Simulated scan of single mutants.
Amino acid sequence: MTLELVAEGLQFPEGPVAMADGSVLFTEIRGGTVSRVRPGREREVVAELGGGPNGLAIGPDGALYVTNNGGSFDWIDQDGLTIPGPAPSTHEGGAIQRLDLDTGKVRTLYTECDGHRLIGPNDLVFDRQGGFWFTDHGSGSHAERRFGRLYYALPDGSRIVAATPHLLAPNGVGLSPDEKTVYVADTYLGRLWAFDIVEPGVVRPVSAVEPGRVVANLQGVQYLDSLAVEAEGNVCVATLVNGGLTIFDPHTGGTEHLAVPDMLCTNLCFGGPDMRDAWITASGTGRLYKTRWPRPGLRLNYNA
């Protein structure tokens, strides 16, 4: 895989979104910003949100929706890498936000569900009905872990529901091409979950003790981060420690790994006329790469 360096010196980039004009939006979690890189130009800050903006998605109204973890990491600088550490004692929780790209106005849509505070919202994906699935990664300290969940919400702020029981560390989320399945990458298990969708916001558990189907578990120390889906259904998951992208075949459970020169490769998105341009966030080294993907990515329901 040949990588083109698009930008560097970024403050833990995540959540890339390919735009129609050739630019790429992304978050800088450590910097608390939504940023943009246009072809041939320097990075620019689109909005300063504070906290820890993580995932991004264009909604049905053309606005940008943000999963903000509320600053759920202390940051460690070690061996030339930026590493997210335990949650600081000041962390109270995160939020779902809406950013108007024309005016810069930010609105907080959700901070809780059924009276329970959102802990560390992480990633999101919109369905054809105009609602969105999102993961709450939870948070961890040196002594304990607060588990996360998969949620579903509407972009007008009127409805939010918990779709699964608590999960260890849900991270990336994506939909199958037919939108019958929602995939969730569980970071510390190295596991890709598949949840069968009954209706928006409702998934079918496998059993009383199995919240969903297991596509595959990675061997050894390999953590999973955010993901994107190919047009034919493969699920591409950014992989930590064994830095790169792991491609899961949801039908066979088989995997393929493509290396990226950063042990904290966190996300990717697809774009371009043929959906074979891929932008990859190499967060530990603060870089954004571009490459040509071997197969087309799945076009998202809403774009701008």
Rank of each mutant, 00 (worst) to 15 (best):
A238T: 11
A238E: 07
A238N: 06
A238D: 08
A238R: 04
A238M: 10
A238W: 06
A238C: 12
T239C: 14
T239G: 10
L240V: 15
L240E: 14
L240T: 09
L240K: 11
V241H: 13
V241A: 14
V241C: 13
N242F: 09
N242K: 13
N242D: 15
G243L: 08
G243R: 05
G243D: 03
G243S: 04
G243H: 02
G244N: 09
G244A: 11
G244F: 06
G244R: 07
L245Q: 02
L245F: 05
T246G: 11
T246M: 09
T246Q: 07
I247T: 14
I247V: 15
I247F: 08
I247M: 04
I247K: 04
I247H: 03
F248A: 08
D249P: 04
D249E: 05
D249I: 08
D249S: 02
D249N: 13
H251Y: 12
H251D: 15
H251K: 14
T252A: 03
T252C: 10
T252H: 06
G253E: 12
G253V: 13
G253R: 03
G254E: 15
G254D: 13
G254M: 08
T255P: 03
T255C: 12
T255K: 07
E256W: 10
E256C: 09
E256I: 13
H257Y: 12
H257S: 12
H257G: 09
H257N: 05
H257D: 08
L258W: 14
L258Q: 11
L258M: 14
L258A: 10
A259W: 11
A259C: 06
A259V: 14
V260Y: 00
V260H: 01
V260R: 02
V260L: 08
P261K: 06
P261I: 09
P261H: 05
P261Q: 05
P261G: 04
P261M: 08
D262E: 04
M263H: 10
M263V: 14
M263S: 11
M263Y: 11
L264M: 13
L264I: 15
L264A: 09
C265F: 01
C265N: 00
C265V: 08
C265D: 00
T266W: 02
N267T: 12
N267K: 01
N267Y: 00
N267M: 02
L268C: 05
L268Y: 00
L268A: 03
L268G: 01
C269I: 05
C269E: 06
C269W: 01
F270P: 03
G271Y: 00
G271R: 01
G271A: 04
G272N: 01
G272E: 03
G272P: 01
G272A: 07
G272D: 04
G272H: 04
P273N: 06
P273G: 04
D274L: 04
D274K: 00
D274H: 00
D274S: 04
D274Y: 02
D274Q: 04
